[in-house]
Amino acid sequence: MAHVRILILRAAGTNCDLEAQHAWQLAGATAERVHIRRLIEKPHTLDEYQVLTIPGGFSYGDDIAAGRIFAAQIRRHLLDDLRKFIDGGRLVLGICNGFQVLVQTGLLPCRLTDDRPRTCTVTYNDPPGFQDRWIYLRASGDRCVFLEPGRVYEMPIAHGEGRVLFASAADLNAAVYAGQNALVYSEPRNGGPNLHGEPLNPNGSQADIAGLCDETGRVLGLMPHPERFVTWTQHPCWTSQPPRAEGDGLALFRRAVGYFK
């Protein structure tokens, strides 16, 4: 098996690219950071990679809305290449701003067509405002290849626009029914102590959705930051809790690398 290669796609204002690269490397992959302008110049270089990651940050300042301009650029220049990439059995991971970009691009939760308008958005938190805190997440089904079914993960969030919202109850139900609500905000694992306080759902997302996958399970977008919990000392209670060998977030990267082995 050849080495797993990761393309970390960045744009002006992307800022979690280095720690995402570090997380992929810890998981045993090779990760390269590529500016969207370079990829637009040579879209065929996508073929050299198994996973595309769109990391967190404030792409183009999140001006107009979070991820809006980055998504517009992908739609204009790279949409067909990306669809081919996914159809070829490769993986896409969007973290925080990257999740917002994937939803706005129309790759999550479902592919857009001319007669299929967008049914989902990621918008302003309720209660409003940017928040950096930790939360619990549960992998809700077995559709998504990045996640271990049923596992509870701890991770930090840091966003002001992370509320997953569907255009109608029917759209929401369809996504949940299809198991696309890959990650939901949840209680601590096994009735353990809640170290991170209330509310469990920090942003008012419908059905407590923290992350969505597409129908194939190979495209995942999530608001929390797995790359910020790869070593134990990143946990806010590491000085008082029984130590873990590594951070919960790393499992997600490892599983993706394992997918190609």
Binding site: E19, G56, G129, Q131, D132, A158, Q234, T239
Partner: peptide, 23 residues
């Protein structure tokens, strides 16, 4: 104020401004 700021980006955070199970 603390929660309004991203105090963990870059992944280097070891001791955060709010700590312990009681924050």
């Amino acid at each position: 104020i603390i929660r309004r700021y991203d105090h963990e980006v870059q992944g280097g955070s070891v001791i955060k401004p709010l700590v312990g199970p009681g924050s």
